[in-house]
Structure formats: C-alpha cells, structure tokens
C-alpha cells in the first residue's frame, strides 16, 4: 500500500569564509558611450553569476544591465579570483565589483559636480544620467561625463577594488571565532509516497523557502534552488558511488550511477525570503550550495512520517527502506507476541 508523509528540514549555511584570505578583485571602466566594462576573474558555470555582477555594476552606475560588458576568467586581462566556490561569488566578487564601480562613479561625480554647480555628494546616478538629488531634471548623460573626464580633466573613470571578508583566525585552543562573514537560512518541506510493500519512494512535492539576502535576480535564485533540490533528491534516494573490494568504482557510468531524471523530479515550489544583509552588495548574500543542504533530510523525515522507519544511510534506496520496514514489522510482531 502506498502511504504519504511529509517531512521538514531547516539549515543555515555560511557565506564568505574568513579563516584564510578570500579576496576577489574587479576593475570597472565607464566608457564614453555610457556603457561600462567589468573585468572579473570569476568563472560563469551556468549559475548566472556574470549576469548578477553586471546587474550590480549597472545598479551602482545607474545604467542598464545590457550596457555592462563583462570580461571574465582570462588570466591575461582579469584580476585573480579566489574561485566560483563556497557560494561566495555574489557576496565576495559582487562586493568587489560594486566597490570598483563606486570608485569609477566618484571620478564621474568630481567631473560632473562643477558643471552642475553642486558638490559631488549632492549627485546621484539613474537612467544613464548623473543628476542632482531631488532635481533629476538637472542632469548630464553618463557617457558625456565619462568623455569629459578623460578628454578634459585627464582622469578617465576607471575604478579597481578588491573585497576580502576580514580574515579572522580561529582560537587555537577553543576552535571558536568568526569563520564566515555572513549566513543564509532555509527550510524545505518534502511530501513523499512510500510503497510499504516494496520500499519504493516517490517524491511528490517540495516546497523550499530560502533566505539569500536581497535576491538580485529572482529567476536565477529560483534556478539555483530547483537545481539544488534535484541534487538533493539524488543524494536522498539514488546517487551512490559504489566500489569493489579493490577500491575500483563499479558504477562509473550513467547507466548504473543513477541520478534524477525529469520523471524523478517532484513539483518544486520556491519561496524567496526577501531580506537585506548590510555587508553584501545591495544586501545580497548567496544561494548556490545551500539549496541542496536540507533536501535529503526533509525527504527522509517524510519517509519516517509515511511509514515510521528511520533510514540512517544515504541514499535511501528501495532496498534500504524495505529492509527497515521488515525490521520494524519483526519488532512489532515480537512485541505483539510478548504481550499475548
């Protein structure tokens, strides 16, 4: 008989490690046509980090995302980056990109201020313009200011910056300290159907609620959460590297190393908890790895809710769930016998 159950799991995850140096650097130049160029060492692997970085630079300069040309991961031209690792790119590289854009913007403000008859601190950016706060009609096109900065003032609007979450060694005796700059939080709920005669588990639905600071690009955040959950479903129920006695992997192929297909993936509902971290670029933290942290725990809790067995090793294959069900029945039978 198929039995349904629900399970819940919560997690926190650290962003921006501080136990060793963890820098990213960026260069932003504002071009005479009002576009900008960002040089960053980070690598795009499909998660959308270059889009996020372009959005951050665009927001800082008051221009459109499409107007930011990103040059990435080229050791000839871009600054070294600690890596597209540890869910750090939006937070660490994003901060570096924002700071670099801010420096370029400061040069533009110095050039624009006398032309507009105000002090630089009275200026803001928006809609491709540098304008007076409170008087947006008094403005200059950002490209014109960039041209003047280079051609008249002799100070081309180029900013370079780095960001390193303050390195803080842990206490050698207690192991205590501040190992990360910030943290994200999430809760996932899984609904499963367990066949109590075969031990087969089907995940029907997962609801995932994630805090990532300001979601700079909600569509990309959803993509990360959905993808992470698919990895979590595989981790929970299917994926296992098997070795023979000599240590050789016996399933080094996708025929025998089973990962979720479109038929294994449940409906996923993503809820982004809008929050703001003052240390992140425009309040953002990160979202990559945290997405697959609570999934397996939620699914195994749901299996327990459905059929009352705890599987304590992953993946919870049909064989393991069936064995646990059988052991539970034997236990109950014994108890029944003792009582009679």
């Amino acid at each position: 008989m198929k039995r349904r159950g629900r399970g819940i799991a919560c997690m926190w995850y650290p962003i921006g490690f501080t136990v060793s140096a963890n820098p990213s650097a960026a260069v932003v130049k504002v071009n005479e046509d009002g576009t900008a160029t960002l040089l960053t060492g980070t690598v795009e692997t499909g998660q959308g980090s270059l889009t996020i970085l372009a959005q951050i630079v665009a927001e800082e300069l008051g221009i459109a995302t499409d107007d930011v040309h990103v040059v990435s991961a080229d050791t000839d031209t871009t600054p070294m980056d600690t890596g597209a690792i540890a869910s750090r790119t939006t937070y660490v590289t994003g901060n570096a990109a924002r700071l670099a854009a801010e420096k370029a913007k400061k040069i533009l403000f110095e050039v624009a201020a006398p032309l507009l008859g105000v002090k630089p601190e009275h200026l803001e950016v928006g809609d491709h313009k540098i304008r007076i706060k409170g008087f947006p009609q008094r403005s200059l096109h950002i490209g014109d200011v960039a041209e003047r900065a280079r051609g008249v003032n002799g100070d081309p609007p180029i900013g370079s910056a780095s960001f390193n979450p303050a390195t803080a060694a842990l206490d050698a005796e207690t192991g205590q300290g501040k190992p990360f700059a910030t943290y994200v939080y999430a809760t996932q709920i899984a609904e499963v159907e367990v066949d109590d005669e075969t031990g087969e588990v089907e995940v029907l639905r997962i609801a995932a609620s994630h805090d990532c600071g300001t979601p700079i690009n909600p569509m990309l955040v959803e993509g990360q959460v959905e993808g992470g959950i698919s990895m979590g479903v595989g981790f929970a129920l299917e994926e296992e590297i098997l070795f023979d006695a000599t240590g050789r992997q016996i399933n080094p192929n996708l025929t025998n190393y089973i990962m979720p297909t479109s038929l294994d993936m449940p409906k996923v509902e993503v809820d982004i908890v809008d929050s703001y971290d003052p240390t992140g670029p425009f309040g953002a933290k990160g979202v990559g790895e945290p997405t697959c942290v609570p999934t397996a725990a939620a699914i195994l809790n749901a299996i327990h809710d459905a059929v009352g067995v705890r599987v304590t090793s992953l993946p919870a294959t049909a064989e393991k769930v069936y064995a646990a069900l059988k052991a539970k029945r034997a236990q109950e039978g014994k108890r029944l016998g003792a009582g009679a």
Binding site: G46, E222, G223, E226, G227, G228, I229, S230, M231, L254, M259, P260, T261, S262, L263, M265, V268
Partner: peptide, 11 residues
C-alpha cells in the same frame, strides 16, 4: 526522461 540535466532540476 532520456535527457539528463545536472543543473536545473528540469523545472
């Protein structure tokens, strides 16, 4: 079902 994707969860 015959197209494996490691990144997106297919959604």
């Amino acid at each position: 079902a015959g197209n494996l994707c490691r990144c997106t969860g297919y959604s």
